[in-house]
Amino acid sequence: MAKFLLLKHYRGGPQQRPNARTPMEEWTPAEIAAHLRFMEDMADDLRRRGEWVGGEALAPEGAFVRYDGEGRPPVTDGPFAETKDLIAGWMMIDVESLERAHETAAYLSSAPGPGGRPLEEWIEVRPFLEYTPPVVD
């Protein structure tokens, strides 16, 4: 088994397909409800399959923070309207293979959008580094 992070982006990644270009605030309430139901069903299905680890949606606005020396408050910067890459949410899965991770990401990308059509949104798939050290040398 291997753990993967599936990332949904507000911005960034390859050029989105037409269905994924309309911002959610321009969808109808019924379209939004159908989308959210799909996401919940998908999480339930992953739980049933024993592949679910976790998942959350992220607010679009955040800040960059850094250390600024002993005794000084953290420095913050942003939010940046122009940042190229902006993550909208994450889902962590524990699956048998990379193929299964891609299949799950493709399913996530098929979530319904405007007109009930699949969004065909790009999902970023990132493997986690295994935490356990090798026991064989």
Binding site: K3, R47, R48, R49, G50, E51, W52, V53, G54, D94, Y131
Partner: peptide, 10 residues
Amino acid sequence: LVPEATMAQR
């Protein structure tokens, strides 16, 4: 390193 509910389902 997975939730208990996930392992129970597995």
